[in-house]
């Protein structure tokens, strides 16, 4: 076992979990619901990136970055649409109804993506309707129901840092960890110092008092979904670059792990999502390298959740639930 590579891998996969967990935790904190479709937004983000990066118009050196931006914008819009269409009318509904709806949205996204990818003539649609040619350089079509990989689209080997003969910090790991830190810092600044951020905290604490201030609850929740889903797009691209296979169910596993990370850290807490994500990534990589059978890795990860909740039912940084007088 090489402890350095465990740390590096743990930090980078943990960073991805943290970015996803931020989306869970913000939506939970402000809209008071568990958005189980969040993981599938990750998958949509990765597919969007995959398709956009293959657009012939984006062949230049900035192409992949523009593809990332397209994925971010599309997922933000998707998040807002999901909130508007599926969740808004359930604001007063019991939380079980919301939860089941979220699971339904999750399956919907997976199946729609499955269908879209296996449809005949998706590339013709892009070409004729949107005027974008999407294919590989040798004109091989990229659509189809087969498993996709995005690794050759996000080549970051030029950023590799060689510490010694045997130890290299991959460029992708550096980028992932850096992106995560930038996101956490920006998000904390946003939530703590902007008017919208303060409004979000007010809504999170007391929705009807926030209404009395003239705060538009719906708009606040929409912004929350947009931010969370934009983060999911970034996480989706990084996750598939790590590398993981891209199929319509790709989002489920990281979605569940990030949810666990959010709960471990204390759901509703931004620093909690960061700590939970990093802890989970580290434990996962450690057990993968120590355990004789890799199949046991996830069992260890889920045990961490159980152990943390035994001692701190509201998570590591979770707030104590105060009894109302």
């Amino acid at each position: 076992m090489d402890i350095m590579s465990v740390i590096i891998n743990g930090l980078s996969i943990g960073s991805i979990y943290a970015i996803i967990a931020l989306g869970y935790t913000m939506v939970y904190g402000i809209a008071k619901m568990l958005n189980f479709a969040h993981g599938d937004v990750i998958m949509v983000g990765a597919y969007t990136f995959f398709a956009a990066a293959h657009a012939r118009n984006l062949n230049g050196p900035a192409g992949p970055l523009i593809a990332v931006l397209i994925a971010i914008v599309l997922c933000a819009l998707l998040g807002m649409a999901i909130e508007f269409l599926a969740y808004r009318s359930l604001r007063q509904a019991p939380s079980l109804a919301v939860l089941i709806t979220a699971i339904g949205v999750s399956y919907l996204l997976q199946n729609v993506m499955q269908t879209v990818m296996s449809l005949d003539g998706v590339d013709r649609f892009f070409k004729n309707v949107l005027g974008v040619v999407i294919s590989e350089n040798n004109d091989k079509p990229i659509f189809g129901a087969d498993t996709k990989m995005i690794t050759d689209l996000v080549n970051m080997q030029s950023l590799d840092i060689h510490l010694s003969e045997t130890l290299t910090i991959p460029g992708l790991a550096i980028v992932t960890i850096a992106v995560n830190l930038v996101i956490v810092v920006l998000l904390s600044l946003f939530v703590n110092y902007t008017k919208m951020g303060k409004a979000m905290r007010s809504v999170s604490e007391d929705r009807s008092a926030a209404q009395l201030m003239g705060i538009n609850i719906n708009r606040t929740i929409t912004v929350t979904f947009a931010i969370g889903s934009a983060l999911a797009a970034i996480a989706g691209i990084l996750y598939c670059a790590f590398p993981h296979e891209l199929v319509p169910t790709t989002g489920s596993i990281p979605g569940i792990k990030a949810f666990i990370a959010a709960v471990i850290g204390g759901i509703g807490s931004i620093p909690g999502a960061l700590i939970g994500g990093l802890l989970l990534g580290f434990v996962e990589q450690l057990s993968r390298s120590v355990l004789p059978v890799t199949e046991l890795t996830d069992a260890v990860v889920y045990s961490v959740l159980i152990i943390v909740l035994l001692f701190r039912p509201t998570g590591l940084l979770g707030k104590k639930i105060r009894e109302k007088v």
Binding site: K195, E205, S208, L212, G214, V325
Partner: peptide, 25 residues
């Protein structure tokens, strides 16, 4: 404006932030 029963100030925000929210519009 309504100043609600039980005060309902935002407990986790600072005094200044509470006033900021009062002037939200």
């Amino acid at each position: 404006c309504l100043c609600p029963e039980g005060r309902r100030i935002f407990q986790q925000l600072t005094v200044r932030e509470n006033l900021d929210m009062g002037g939200y519009t």
